[in-house]
């Protein structure tokens, strides 16, 4: 009977190790496809522009003077066009130092996925 040739075992072992490593690398490359998907979806889902809009509008309202009509306008348009519940509260002259009067403005934005709450201090020169 012919004797089994057991030389070159190191080479075979290395071959196994490399193939297993390549398998895991292939899994990682595969997953990178979904990574791009979820990040850009998350970015597009986050209502950055809407929050800017509401915030700037509320601060403008505080500068120009609040009214019931403006409040109803903002709430209705936000609900209809941005699918968001918006609420704000402006308390004039809540705080004073030697240079400024500060209005306290509360801004709330909620579109079911993203919630944004802010308290903004609007400084008005004395």
């Amino acid at each position: 009977m012919e004797r089994i040739n057991d030389e070159g075992q190191w080479i075979v072992l290395m071959g196994f190790i490399i193939s297993v490593a390549l398998f895991f690398l292939a899994i990682i490359v595969n997953q990178s496809v979904t990574v791009g998907q979820t990040t850009s979806e998350a970015v597009i889902e986050f209502p950055k522009n809407e929050i800017y809009e509401v915030r700037e509008a509320v601060i403008d309202i505080a500068k120009e003077g609040d009214s019931l009509t403006l409040e109803q306008d903002l709430y209705a348009i936000s609900m209809d066009r941005m699918n968001a519940v918006v609420y704000y509260d402006i308390r004039a002259d809540r705080y004073t130092d030697i240079y400024y009067n500060y209005d306290e403005i509360e801004i709330h934005f909620n579109n079911g996925v993203t919630k944004y709450n802010e308290t903004y201090w609007l400084a008005k020169k004395l």
């Binding site: 496809v33 979904t34 990574v35 791009g36 979820t38 850009s40 970015v43």
Partner: peptide
């Protein structure tokens, strides 16, 4: 690697 999410980048 071209991802399907790349379409959203130009949307952004």
């Amino acid at each position: 690697v071209y991802t399907p999410g790349d379409a959203h980048i130009s949307d952004m």
